[in-house]
């Protein structure tokens, strides 16, 4: 592997890793705060894909405006998902499995629904950023570089909110002990809804960045959901920072593995790595302070 090729591989790994980090950190935020595995998270990503397609392509809005509208809409959906399906189930004794089952059902329902509404065809979104960056011998389309930059920016903002603001303290307090948080006057229910909305915004950002590269289709969320869950586990029990780190690690493992094995085996390696990590370190690779 030449130096240039190695560098390109690393950058590509970081780019796919940043998408995994966006999706995984959203799932980790939910898991850390509510202990819920949201199997419908991938469908929030898919719906955001259709929203950006509608706003930016069909309606022809400027990209920034379309992106903001998409994120606002998907945040509302995330909050709605929590209020309507998850909050009522959380009151049950066997809520953990009820929530998994209900969100799996919802996920497949939304997928087939999207297929009926928008059809099976894969719809392209044009690149938001044109041209190719040439740094030395490395050539990289700006669109791909933008994925990395925007993802880092958005996750940075989320990190700042979580660790430097009052809202963040409230979220972390609820994550540690929601009953104790309730006792000091924090509305835990509202915090849970907020967390789902933030998590949906992260997935929405992922969808906007991805849509020009992988085209919008009803199943676009499925492939990323399991990766997102892998990131949650690798990152360690719902830790936001851990999930971000694990996302990048997973992206790097995948792109580097392609150098040694045919590309159709890269997912096998990624999931085998996940099972190996769980066997050796069930608490995750980056277990530390919780989100």
């Amino acid at each position: 592997m030449s130096g240039t090729h190695l560098l390109e591989t690393l950058i590509n790994g970081l780019i796919s890793g940043s998408i995994y980090a966006l999706i995984g950190s959203g799932l980790a935020l939910i898991y850390g705060t509510t202990r819920v595995l949201n199997f419908a998270h991938g469908e929030l990503l898919m719906l955001a894909g259709y929203f950006i397609l509608m706003f930016a392509v069909t309606l022809g809005w400027p990209v920034i405006l379309a992106a903001i509208a998409t994120i606002v809409l998907v945040m509302v959906l995330g909050a709605l998902l929590q209020r309507v399906t998850i909050a009522p189930l959380m009151k049950r004794e066997d809520w953990a499995f009820s929530v998994i089952a209900a969100t799996i059902g919802l996920s497949i329902f939304l997928q087939s629904g999207a297929q009926l509404v928008w059809g099976e065809q894969y719809q392209g979104v044009p690149y938001f950023f044109h041209g190719v960056a040439v740094i030395g011998e490395v050539r990289m389309p700006w669109q791909r570089i933008a994925i990395l930059v925007v993802a880092l920016l958005v996750m940075g903002i989320c990190g700042l909110i979580l660790y430097r603001t009052k809202l963040g303290r409230i979220v972390r307090a609820t994550a540690q002990d929601s009953e104790a948080a309730l006792a000091v006057g924090i509305p835990a229910g509202l915090v849970h809804t907020t967390v789902f909305a933030i998590s949906a915004a992260l997935a929405g950002t992922g969808a906007i960045l991805l849509s020009p590269l992988i085209t919008v289709n009803p199943w676009m969320g499925t492939a990323y959901l399991l990766k997102g869950f892998a990131v949650v586990i690798l990152g360690g029990l719902g830790s936001f920072g851990g999930a971000v780190a694990a996302g990048f690690l997973l992206g790097l493992i995948e792109t580097i593995s392609v150098a040694f094995v045919p590309s159709e085996w890269s997912n096998v390696i990624a999931f085998a790595f996940l099972i190996a990590v769980i066997t050796a370190r069930p608490e995750g690779l980056f277990a530390g302070r919780g989100a």
Binding site: G105, L106, S107, I108, F109, L110, Q111, S112
Partner: peptide, 12 residues
């Protein structure tokens, strides 16, 4: 096309 829609709805 409705089969998976039905299964999803039934689960929920």
């Amino acid at each position: 096309d409705y089969r998976m829609l039905l299964y999803g709805a039934l689960i929920v």
